[in-house]
Design a protein around this nucleic acid. Structure first.
Lengths: 217, 217
DNA sequence: TAGATTGTTAATCGATTAACAATC
DNA sequence: TAGATTGTTAATCGATTAACAATC
C-alpha cells in the first residue's frame, strides 16, 4: 500500500514544528489551534493544517490540536522514537565539536564511536570515547549496530570514505564534507554545506547594501 | 530602479553552481554548455539557463558559457569579491571548530575576533586570536569594521546576545543557536539548525525502513 | 551559411493559500 | 444547539520544464 510521497518542503518544516511544540509543551500549553500556532510560527494556518494532514488527522474540530499528542506524533514521524547508533568519522575540530555540542542522546542518537586515520589521535578520548583507526570501522559498525555516520573529513577523501562506510553497512550519512556524495539510493544522505550557508548570508548582505545605495541615490 | 526580486530557490542554488564551476575551472575547462553542466550537476539545462538569466546573460549563443567568467560573475553576485570582517560569539567547541575549520579568508571573510562571557576563556587563543569578554564587543566592532557575527552560543542567551550585536552595528548573523532570532529586517540572518538537519536524516532513514518492511510483506 | 546553444516566452507542474462543508 | 476549528477541496500563485526564435 504505497502511501503518497511527502514533499521535501513539508519534511523540511517538520523539525521546526517539533521545536515549537516542544516549547509550548514545556510552557504547559495543553491545546493550540492552527490559527494560534500560525501567529507564533509565522506561517499560515492553512499550511499548518495541510502539512499535518499529510500524515493523518491529529486535530479535532472545534478544539484544535493537543500539544503533547501532536508533539509526540511529529517526533514519531521523524523517527525520534527509535534509537540509532552513530559514529563520527573525522576527529578534527568539527568532529569533536559535534560530539560535544549536540546532545544527540536526548533524541535517540547514541554517540558510539569516533574514527580517524591520523595515528596521532588514536586513543585520545572525545567525550569519553577513544578515537579508533579507520581500519577498525568495519568490525565496529557490525558489532555495535551502527547505522548513522557523521562525515567530518576534508572533501578530497570524502567520496572514498563514504563508499567504504556504505560497503560496511552504514545506512545514513550526515555529510559535512563539501562534496555531493554518490551513494546507492538506499543510503540516506543529509548534507550540511557550511560554506554554502555562509555564501547565502553574503548574498543577502550584498543585496541589502545594494538596495540601500540605490534608495539613497 | 527596483530590480525584480530573486527567489530563495535560485539563491539557494548559487553556491552549488559556484562550487562546480570552481572545480571545472581548476580542471582547466574553458567553456561549458547548459546541457553539459546539466549532466554534471544533475539539474535541468533549462533551470540552469533560467537561473543565470535572473542576473543577466552570461552566455553566448552557439558557444555556451565561459567557465572562468561565469565563476567570477557568480562570485560577484554572492558578494565574494567583497571583504567582510567577522567575529565569533561563543568560544565553545563549535565556535572553535568554525574558527579553525573553515578557511573563511579564501572567500573574503576575515576572522577578526572571538568573544565569550566565560572568564576562564579570556586570553586563550583560537587560531592566534585571543578570546575577549563580551563587554568589549561594542568598541571592537566599531574599531574593526566588523559586519558579520557568528553566533555559537546556547539557545537561552541567543536572543539577548543577538539584540546586543545588532545594537552595536552588526549587519549579518550566522546563527547556530537553535532559535528563530527576532532582529530588525535590515539585519540579515542565516540559520544553521544542526538538529533540524539531523532530524531530516532521521526521517529519511525511518521512511526508507518503513518502505522496505512494506515491500517485503 | 549551417550548426549550436543561448535567452526568453509559453506550458506544466507543484506548492501555498483560500474557502467551506464536516463535525466536535 | 451554537460556536469553533478541523480536514479537505478548489483557486491561486510561483517555480520548473519545454519549446523555439534569436543570434553567435
Amino acid at each position: 500500500m504505497a502511501e503518497k510521497e511527502i514533499s521535501q518542503a513539508v519534511i523540511g518544516r517538520l523539525p521546526r514544528y517539533f521545536r515549537f511544540l516542544g516549547e509550548l509543551k514545556d510552557e504547559g500549553v495543553e491545546r493550540i489551534s492552527s490559527q494560534e500556532l500560525s501567529g507564533i510560527m509565522n506561517v499560515t494556518a492553512s499550511q499548518i493544517r495541510q502539512d499535518f494532514n499529510n500524515f493523518g488527522g491529529f486535530g479535532q474540530q472545534g478544539y484544535g490540536y493537543n500539544v503533547e499528542y501532536l508533539y509526540q506524533e511529529i517526533g514519531r514521524i521523524l523517527g525520534l522514537d527509535k534509537t540509532h547508533h552513530l559514529i563520527i568519522v573525522g576527529a578534527g575540530n568539527l568532529g569533536q565539536a559535534l560530539a560535544n555540542y549536540m546532545n544527540f542522546e536526548r533524541r535517540g542518537f547514541i554517540f558510539t564511536g569516533v574514527f580517524d586515520n591520523n595515528p596521532a589521535l588514536y586513543g585520545r578520548k572525545i567525550r569519553g570515547i577513544e578515537v579508533r583507526p579507520m581500519e577498525e570501522v568495519a568490525d565496529f559498525v557490525e558489532q555495535n549496530n551502527v547505522d548513522i555516520a557523521v562525515l567530518t573529513i576534508p572533501k578530497n577523501s570524502a567520496e572514498e570514505v563514504a563508499e567504504r562506510l556504505v560497503s560496511v553497512g552504514i545506512k545514513a550519512i550526515w555529510n559535512f564534507a563539501h562534496v555531493d556524495l554518490k551513494v546507492p539510493k538506499e543510503v540516506q544522505v543529509e548534507n550540511v554545506h557550511l560554506s554554502d550557508s555562509l555564501m547565502k548570508l553574503s548574498y543577502m548582505l550584498e543585496r541589502y547594501e545594494k538596495e540601500s545605495r540605490e534608495t539613497n541615490e
